[in-house]
């Protein structure tokens, strides 16, 4: 899980061109949106594409996206749960 979290951080930085942020700056439990990294709804759509492209799991609706993309940790949990099932 920790490995996946670190991997995700790097992928998020790259996908969203967060040039001035390092993986260490991202708290895996903190919210990614609004107060957290200051990401917006367009970033959310980009992250949905990222999860599908890199891991093959499709987030079906915007509602589901909200829960899955809450934090790096919730993203990692979504991916791990899918990998198990």
């Amino acid at each position: 899980m920790d490995e996946l979290i670190e991997k995700l951080k790097v992928e998020i930085i790259e996908a969203l061109s967060l040039e001035e942020i390092t993986p260490a700056d991202i708290d895996a439990n903190a919210p990614l949106f609004l107060d957290g990294l200051g990401l917006d709804s367009i970033d959310a759509l980009e992250l949905i594409v990222l999860v599908e492209k890199k891991y093959g799991y499709k987030i079906q609706t915007a509602e589901e996206g909200k829960t899955v993309l809450y934090s790096v940790k919730s993203m990692a949990e979504f991916i791990t749960n899918r990998q198990k099932s």
């Binding site: 367009i42 759509l45 980009e46 594409v49 599908e52 492209k53």
Partner: peptide
């Protein structure tokens, strides 16, 4: 499939 929305916007 799996298109990034940013360039479209």
């Amino acid at each position: 499939k799996m298109l990034n929305p940013t360039p479209f916007i």
